[in-house]
Design a binder for these strands. Structure first.
Length: 617
DNA sequence: TTTAGGG
DNA sequence: CCCTAAA
């Protein structure tokens, strides 16, 4: 069983680092993968119940619906959980060193069982509930942890401690909890199993899983396992900042004598501007062009998250992808295996499947040369750029330190779904400097220019030409985007991202872009970063003064610090603004631009168009 | 490199 | 946002 929780960070134009949930949606009941415009990303978490990992295809909704009335007598127990609720994040580990089995107790329900020797039972609630519930407290060994009370009117607690929800107790209590929370339009959902749980079965030493959760509009609670993110890959900011400092002033500027009705300082007497960088153009890649490229990868030009999911994890989830495993077991029972160090797990790998290869070969080539070509491609990627990935029930197992027991591989039923795959090795690089404070928000342009790549190209051989593409499976990234000129809500969103540095930074520390990739054909589209109102304001003001057609000056004037806004972007934005201003408000999409601004856009556009025509004459 | 304009 | 001809 998998608890699933939909994340909605509410970011605008930000990508949240996630490991996508397995694309296989169980019997069509699973949450639909939305087009992820930086939010509403789906995650999954595997919860061990009764020592078994649940069926991935099982819907928590259905399960809950079906089983909630049962006599509950089991726990979902996940040690070392991190619970992130929305913008808040708190590592349970902060409590664990001294309170190893602290739990959040719902005292009004009266279930407070702390089993010190066992793993931590886990349940989650929506943050709303927690924010409103004064009855929540954190207990450790029956004693409350020192967590101050808090009062907030909005019910959305920002007190981080309240974001930790650990429920240890009888499921009878959880049942009541559920009902109680139902009345609050929220849920506490714990995987429910009718059979009794073996309390001693959960390995204590297993690595902590991180659970990111946040209630969505429907108060639908899912969990997210982000432990795999730690091996996620994100590109190094490889968009080189091609700054060219120009000492000489722009010739265009010096003879610009236009007068703008919108302001007097339109004349660029700001020579200092031209000591700044001139070009911010960030087109490090050429668009990948492949004859067999999936059309979907370019169909949504707004955002490619879903494409990434499809191209990476979707493949992972493909039964045909991983190596088939014939698991012969010497099981005399799981329990005996656990007790015995010598209990070996026998696996027989039938075959590996090599990651996707792209080969270009002339049609006049012979079969023999085709074989050689394929062989060359295969051997080249097998050379040193692949490593083995482990798939268990469609999900990657990334924690190399886990034992087979801990991952469940030693179990028969799991082993049936154990898979191996070859995947490109991620070249690690040092993470970008990061401060949890606002410095992250304002200055680190390297983050802003981080790029994500889906796969890896190896060098081409010739002739015939070989292009090898392999997929970085399941690794997604965060690319925090920060409009330097923007304020208010944008920054709030930024901070929200900062609030979960353990996620974003880990993701950012990874490099999905294969360093050895020398193929310049592989290019990732920049992430979409909608203009905020304040950015629009700045743009309009600059254009009013400088006019259309001097986008570099506009950039320097109003967006000099917004590294991710190129003058082309500004030109494009102005174009869309003009279009937006001309259409009816009902037809407009995205964050509404104040009509006042749109009016100014029209006025400015009309004026400068006129000026251009006059100048032409 | 920048501008301009189509996609 | 991307792409690119043209300046």
């Amino acid at each position: 069983m998998v608890l699933q929780k939909r994340l909605d960070y509410g970011f605008s134009g930000y990508q949240v680092p996630v490991v996508p949930r397995a694309s296989r949606s169980a019997r069509g009941r699973g949450p639909v993968q939305k087009k992820a415009c930086g939010k509403n990303l789906h995650h999954i978490v595997g919860i061990n119940i009764n020592g078994k990992q649940g069926d991935e295809e099982e819907s928590i909704n259905d399960h809950h619906r079906e089983k909630r009335s049962c006599n509950l007598n089991s726990f979902a127990r996940v040690p070392g959980l991190q619970v992130n609720h929305g913008h808040q994040s708190c590592m349970l580990k902060e409590f664990l060193p001294t309170h190893e089995n602290c739990c959040l107790n719902i005292s009004s329900v009266g279930s407070k069982t702390c089993d010190k020797s066992e793993g931590i039972c886990f349940a989650e609630t929506s943050s709303r509930v927690v924010g409103n519930s004064s009855c929540l407290g954190v207990l450790s060994e029956g004693r409350g942890l020192d967590i101050p009370e808090k009062k907030e009117e909005d019910g959305l607690s920002t007190r981080r401690n309240e974001r930790i929800h650990h429920v240890i107790g009888s499921l009878g209590g959880l049942m009541e909890t559920d009902q109680r929370f139902d009345s609050l339009k929220t849920y506490v959902k714990v995987p429910l199993l009718e059979d009794c749980m073996n309390l001693g079965s959960f390995p204590r030493g297993s690595a902590g899983k991180k659970v990111v959760s946040k209630d969505d509009d429907e108060n639908f609670v899912r969990c997210t396992q982000l432990s795999t993110i730690t091996e996620g890959c994100v590109t190094q900011p490889f968009m080189r900042d091609q700054r060219i400092k120009k000492v000489s002033a722009s010739k265009r500027t010096s003879d610009f004598k236009g007068t703008s009705p919108f302001g007097n300082d339109g004349n660029c007497n700001r020579r200092d501007n031209f000591f700044h960088e001139r070009s911010e153009r960030m087109y490090p890649f050429k668009k990948r062009k492949f004859f067999n490229q999936s059309p979907s990868s370019t169909s949504d030009r707004g955002f490619q998250y879903e494409d990434i999911l499809k191209s990476s994890d979707g493949r992972v989830d493909d039964d045909n992808y991983g190596a088939a495993i014939a698991a012969s077991s010497s099981t005399a029972g799981r329990q005996s295996c656990r007790r015995s160090q010598d209990c070996n797990v026998k696996l027989s790998i039938k075959s590996f499947r090599v990651p996707e290869l792209f080969i270009e070969i002339p049609e006049t080539a012979t079969i023999g040369s085709l074989k050689r070509t394929v062989m060359q491609a295969v051997t080249s990627i097998l050379g040193d750029e692949l490593h083995v990935g482990i798939l268990l029930q469609g999900k990657k197992v990334r924690d190399d330190s886990k034992t087979l027991i801990q991952t469940g591989i030693s179990q028969d039923e799991k082993r049936q779904r154990l898979g191996f795959m070859l995947e490109p090795r991620c070249t690690q690089s040092s993470p970008p400097q990061y401060n949890e404070d606002s410095s992250f928000l304002s200055t680190d342009s390297s983050l802003q220019s981080s790029r994500l790549q889906l796969g890896v190209y190896n060098a081409s051989r010739e002739p015939p030409q070989i292009k090898v593409e392999s997929c970085v499976g399941g690794n997604l990234s965060v690319v925090p985007s920060l409009a330097d000129t923007s304020t208010d809500n944008t920054n709030a969103k930024c901070r929200a991202l900062v609030a979960v540095p353990s996620i974003s930074m880990k993701a950012l520390a990874m490099v999905p872009f294969h360093r050895k990739s020398r193929n310049p054909d592989f290019v990732q589209r920049r992430i979409r970063r909608p203009f905020s109102v304040s950015e629009v304001e700045a743009l309009v003001q600059a254009v009013e003064k400088l006019g259309t057609g001097r986008w570099r000056d506009v950039k320097l004037r109003a967006f000099d610090n917004a590294k991710h806004r190129t003058y082309v972007d500004l030109k494009d934005k102005w174009k869309t603004l003009v279009h937006t201003a001309r259409i009816s408000p009902q037809q407009r999409r995205g964050e509404p631009v104040p009509q006042e601004l749109l009016d100014r856009v029209l006025a400015g556009h009309a004026y400068w168009s006129q000026q251009q025509s006059i100048k032409a004459v």
